[in-house]
């Protein structure tokens, strides 16, 4: 019920409409466009909304049929039976082949996000509602011992399918200064797309184009980031994006995440990852990008259930579409006063 339906529901008559739909990264793109439109004087306040009943509707997102549409690419792909999970798994397989990345290293991402989820009552409730068994902090062994869904990705490396919804208000500085909550500023944004190319590199995502644009606009470097809200559809999504966002070099992500580095209580080792519990362990209604913005804002306001002390800078990076083929990246850099 996005766009005009929301306007009608609330009786709003907006001056700018943006129903850009690029999957999970849509909301980072909306935020970037809202900032642009507000800066251009086209609008003063933007409302970003999202709601989905993917779980209640039993939508088979990760392992369902992908018959596709009438795009020529769809007409070449549909006979293969590639599931969405297998698409990402093929990135992981190649990453392991090229760089020696291991399942244990990828599991670090699942373990860190579950660690954060267990501190978030809403995430625990979500896992209970979805009948997760044995809800607790996980170990690397738990992840690599869980069943294989699409080699080399195990069950606990795949996000859940939940219901969910969220909203973000983006306002001009004049409006934001007058609000009850302390403002969180959009310091930079970047957008990019990537698609399969003959001879192309599947281990590198569109983030290598969107992130430098966003960081340059913000005037900061990745090493200054306290909070990394990175779309965790799968473990490999985060590993690839940590590299592409510039936290470490291409191929070094596996070693970089080792030893619990991504936990919120390790602030000297780099950013905390997905402190709400992420798509892996808190919610994933199909297009998770809005929650990346929401938890980043909570961290910068000191409201997270896994609060990083004195968090000043956050990145929210959405990946929409499929990492191993065609996708859209949206990078948003956020800061506080």
């Amino acid at each position: 019920m996005q766009g005009f339906n929301i306007a009608e529901y609330f009786g709003i008559k907006p001056n700018v409409l943006d129903m850009t739909n690029v999957g999970g990264s849509s909301f980072e793109i909306h935020a970037a466009h809202a900032k642009r439109d507000i800066a251009a004087g086209k609008a003063k306040v933007a409302l970003l909304t999202y709601g989905s009943t993917a779980h209640s509707n039993a939508r088979a997102i990760g392992a369902g049929g992908r018959d596709g549409g009438m795009h020529p690419a769809d007409n070449m792909d549909r006979f293969s039976g590639m599931t969405l999970i297998a698409n990402y798994a093929m990135v992981a397989q190649r990453h392991m082949h090229e760089f020696g990345t291991t399942s244990e290293q990828l599991a670090e991402i699942s373990v860190a996000t579950r660690f954060h989820a267990m501190r978030n009552p809403e995430a625990v409730k979500a896992m209970e509602d979805l009948d997760f068994i044995n809800i607790r902090e996980t170990t690397i062994e738990d992840v690599v011992d869980s069943r294989m869904i699409a080699d080399p990705l195990h069950l606990l490396e795949c996000c859940m399918i939940s219901d969910g919804g969220g909203a973000v208000v983006i306002a001009s500085p004049e409006v934001a200064r007058d609000c009850k909550k302390p403002p969180v500023w959009i310091l930079g944004s970047g957008e990019a797309t990537k698609y399969p190319e003959n001879g192309g590199d599947i281990c590198t995502s569109a983030a290598v184009q969107s992130a430098p644009t966003a960081f340059k606009e913000a005037g900061i470097s990745p090493s200054e980031i306290d909070i990394a809200m990175i779309y965790d559809s799968f473990s490999i999504t985060v590993l690839t994006l940590l590299e592409d966002l510039g936290f470490c070099k291409k191929g070094e992500g596996g070693a970089w995440v080792e030893g619990g580095r991504l936990r919120f209580d390790r602030p000297n080792d780099g950013p905390a990852l997905n402190t709400d519990g992420g798509g892996l362990s808190s919610n994933h209604p199909g297009m998770r990008g809005i929650f990346l913005l929401i938890e980043a804002a909570r961290q910068l306001r000191g409201e997270s259930t896994s609060q990083v002390e004195n968090a000043k800078l956050a990145v929210a990076h959405g990946n929409g579409g499929m990492l191993g083929s065609r996708h859209v990246a949206g990078t948003i850099i956020l800061g506080r006063d």
């Binding site: 088979a60 992908r66 599931t83 999970i85 093929m90 069943r147 294989m148």
Partner: peptide, 11 residues
């Protein structure tokens, strides 16, 4: 170039 063994599909 790369591959995956699909072990879950609802198709």
């Amino acid at each position: 170039y790369t591959f995956s063994i699909v072990r879950l599909s609802y198709h």
